[in-house]
């Protein structure tokens, strides 16, 4: 529409130069000319990324799980088979760690909820608004440190010459160290240590949103403290509980290094079973792929069922 203007000569800012350069104008007009083109340009990269980088690996994994062998030696074609999937269901060495992982993660999720709920409640309802950030930061900082370092820190705490054993010995409760390490106990302590943040944040934000006058109104109507908690606070923080539990459960099932370091032979997790199929140089990738697929499908289904039970619709996960 604007008439073709003659631009006067003289130094211009970069943007001025860009906006009036013939090349840019024609590129802009052809790429951004219509609403549809703008949407395509905006959507292309994220959608291609989501499909190629997020969905691609999962579908490829599912695909490989039906191969008879992978990686393939040169010139060899794969044939499709369900052997890798069958292997899971007939081998106790595989399905026992699988169910152990699910049950263990479930128990830990519940334990984390019970531990963290009072913390979140205290933060959201009893700390003055102006100081909440400070109190929250105090518990956030340890979570910024990586999985390996924090797992190592737990090792130091629970070792035979670790702080707890030394303290107990000093108090005269025990004479020889309790072997905490390499048991389900040490693993549980470690995983709760790693995941509690993912419970704390959703709970905190759910509890923080409950208006204070809600409780006051209930108190006014004669509801005692416990009744108020069961009838008002707990139902209103349901969304936070649901998100927190799902996140913690999914993350807990996915740990590999922590069980290897803190766990023992009786607490082998499924992640180790999966990893072992890749560690050896044999063509066991389809088995690993099948195991991962089984775990993915199971955990996501359990999470979805749990969210459904908790009355959350499937919109978003957080």
């Amino acid at each position: 529409m604007p008439p073709q203007e003659e631009y006067s000569t003289g130094s211009r800012s970069f943007w001025s130069w860009l906006a009036t350069s013939k090349v840019y104008q024609s590129v802009s007009a052809s790429l951004l000319g219509t609403k549809k083109r703008r949407l395509v340009l905006l959507a292309a990269v994220p959608i291609i990324w989501a499909i190629v980088a997020n969905l691609g690996p999962l579908f490829k994994m599912l695909d490989i799980s039906f191969y008879d062998a992978y990686p393939l030696s040169k010139g060899r074609e794969a044939t499709y088979t369900i052997a890798a999937w069958r292997e899971f269901f007939v081998t106790p060495v595989y399905y026992i760690p699988f169910f152990r992982t699910l049950i263990f993660s479930g128990i830990l999720t519940f334990a984390t909820l019970v531990l963290v709920y009072p913390v979140a409640y205290f933060l959201a309802r009893h700390v003055p608004k102006s100081r909440q950030m400070l109190f929250l930061l105090l518990v956030l900082i340890p979570f910024w440190v990586g999985e390996i370092i924090r797992t190592y820190a737990i090792m130091i705490l629970l070792g035979n010459n670790g702080a707890i054993n030394i303290a107990l010995k000093f108090l005269g409760i025990i004479d020889r160290p309790i072997p905490f390490m390499y048991t389900s106990f040490s693993l549980g302590i470690g995983i709760v240590y790693l995941v509690s943040l993912y419970m704390l944040l959703p709970l905190y934000s759910a509890l923080e949103k409950i208006p204070t006058n809600m409780n006051e109104a209930a108190a006014d109507l004669g509801a005692g403290p416990w009744r108020r908690f069961w009838r008002i606070t707990l139902p209103l923080s349901k969304d936070g509980i649901a998100s927190g539990c799902v996140l913690v459960f999914l993350i807990a099932t996915g740990f590999y290094a922590t069980p290897v370091i803190l766990g023992g032979p009786s607490s082998t997790m499924f992640a180790e079973s999966i990893a072992n199929t890749f560690n050896v140089a044999a063509d066991r990738w389809p088995t690993g792929a099948a195991f991962s697929s089984i775990m993915l499908i199971t955990t996501l289904t359990l999470a979805a069922v749990f969210l459904k039970i908790m009355g959350r619709r499937g919109k978003g996960y957080l």
Binding site: E5, S11, R12, S13, S16, T20
Partner: peptide, 12 residues
């Protein structure tokens, strides 16, 4: 808006 109309620094 002046820059995007292609005005020079001095004009702007």
């Amino acid at each position: 808006g002046l820059e995007l109309k292609g005005k020079t620094k001095a004009e702007t």
